[in-house]
């Protein structure tokens, strides 16, 4: 089992942050609500323990959809943050090894800059930066890097789902022809 942290962005017209928090927190465990953002959308950040990201994300999507059936789920945000300890765990290295890579005392140097701090002693990195550096500089693609294709497809599926309701029958039929048969059978 692994720990996953991800965020779903959604629209829920007519509801404010306080009203949404009362509805969501009574029915969805281990998640935090933020919003509204500049565009009026809300964010629900999940922590989930699961055997895979697709399982965790699919279940979270269904939870949100069942609690707020009228909400438009826009996309999964790809801004996962990782501490040095997280990087060590995901890369299968010791904390000391990661500390040396970050400091440029081991490996090719040029480790990506941290994107912020949790507290005075703990820096955090954007996971996508770290994963790209491991793949490009060390030739070590990390598990979560392989999820980027899945996340892109997941977001595209959400977009198709959002648009499909606005399309007429001929357009929907044309779309159905484009989607691969294995998706319908999954």
């Amino acid at each position: 089992m692994n720990d996953y942290n991800f965020t779903l962005r959604f629209l829920s017209p007519g509801r404010d942050l306080d009203a949404l928090s009362l509805e969501l927190y009574e029915r969805i465990d281990d998640a935090s609500l933020m919003g509204p953002d500049d565009d009026g959308s809300f964010l629900l950040e999940f922590d989930r323990r699961s055997s895979s990201l697709p399982l965790a994300l699919g279940a979270a999507f269904e939870e949100l959809r069942s609690v707020l059936p009228e909400a438009q789920i826009l996309r999964v945000e790809d801004d996962d943050l990782a501490t040095m300890a997280d990087i060590a765990a995901r890369a299968g290295r010791s904390a000391e090894s990661v500390r040396l890579l970050v400091a440029g005392k081991r490996g090719p140097g040029g480790f990506p800059p941290a994107s912020g701090r949790v507290d005075a002693r703990t820096k955090v990195w954007r996971w996508s930066d770290v994963a790209e550096w491991f793949a490009d500089q060390l030739g070590q693609p990390l598990a979560d890097t392989a999820d980027s294709g899945f996340l892109q497809a997941f977001n595209d599926a959400l977009e198709i789902r959002r648009l499909a309701g606005k399309l007429g029958k001929p357009e929907q039929q044309a779309l159905a022809k484009v989607l691969p048969a294995e998706l319908a059978a999954a």
């Binding site: 306080d18 949404l20 927190y25 281990d30 935090s32 609500l33 933020m34 943050l81 955090v124």
Partner: peptide
């Protein structure tokens, strides 16, 4: 940044605290 709504009875207080810390870090 978008306001963060705090859960009064989080099922995992540790994870709730981590999410608050992440929003500070971001």
């Amino acid at each position: 940044c978008p306001p963060f709504s705090v859960n009064g009875t989080p099922s995992s207080p540790d994870n709730e605290a981590k999410r608050i810390d992440r929003s500070i870090a971001r």
